[in-house]
Amino acid sequence: MKKFNDNLKLFFSNKLGLIGTVILVGFILVAIFAPQIAPYDPYQRIGVPFGKPSMQNWLGTNDVGQDILSEVIYGTRISLLMGLLSAGVALIIGTIVGLTSGFFGGRIDTVLMRAVDISLVIPMLPLMILLAAFLGPSFWNIVIVIGILSWASPARVIRSQVLTIKNKGYIEAVKATGGKSSYIITKHILPPTLSIIISQLILMSSRAILMESSLSFLGLGDPTQKSWGIILYYAQSRSAFLSDAWIWWILPPGLLITLLVISFAYIGNSLEQIVNPRLRR
């Protein structure tokens, strides 16, 4: 418990980590209270198409007359949720692979790590495009596509942590006293790995948010679930960049994506510094 408090102190002594947390909490609040905050229903036509910003519609209206501000506010929900869920899927696979590979070693390790190497080298985005196009546009398909194609780098990080723990002697001792593999993994390997898993989850979320926006931008997302990427997709296909509309239609969603990704990155980095003291200054 003392260690936890120390780490908490260390985390908050990192200004950037604190800034990231504040921003993220802000986004989470917006996501939860989107219906209360948003002035309109983003799926409802409330004005003229391509409306300029006005007192009624601060960010104007889109090509079918929906309020862009409301779209953006509701988009927080979808983008944040998709990022977290995709990262979750990636981490579940990555953790299983990393634990198995690190704990059992030998041939299993060789095979799994070769798979990791291959998936790190292949161009991920084209593969995602392919898979997303094949599965068809839906919220869960995008989550799954990003998740199952992003497990490799967390798997590698987790594996190296498992290896460090495994070499600490006491694991040998537990093995020698006849502890079952499943017992050793859940009782002795998983707990000290958890902090790494969490920091990876955070870093993965930031990447997943970017990937989701890319896929949605290419028109592979679910048009009934308006994420920030989808808003940008419509802005692009209606050539918003040719007129002044880019200022209220293109700029805000992109800035929000950047801000959210930065907040995750700051949190992830400062967590990583706690988990991996070597990185500390």
């Binding site: 926006s213 931008f217 040719l242 293109i250 992109g254 994506i257 801000l259 990704v261």
Partner: peptide, 13 residues
């Protein structure tokens, strides 16, 4: 942290 396609869109605009 910036979505690359978005940077492209801003540049175009």
């Amino acid at each position: 942290s910036m979505p690359s396609f978005w940077i492209g869109m801003i540049f175009i605009a």
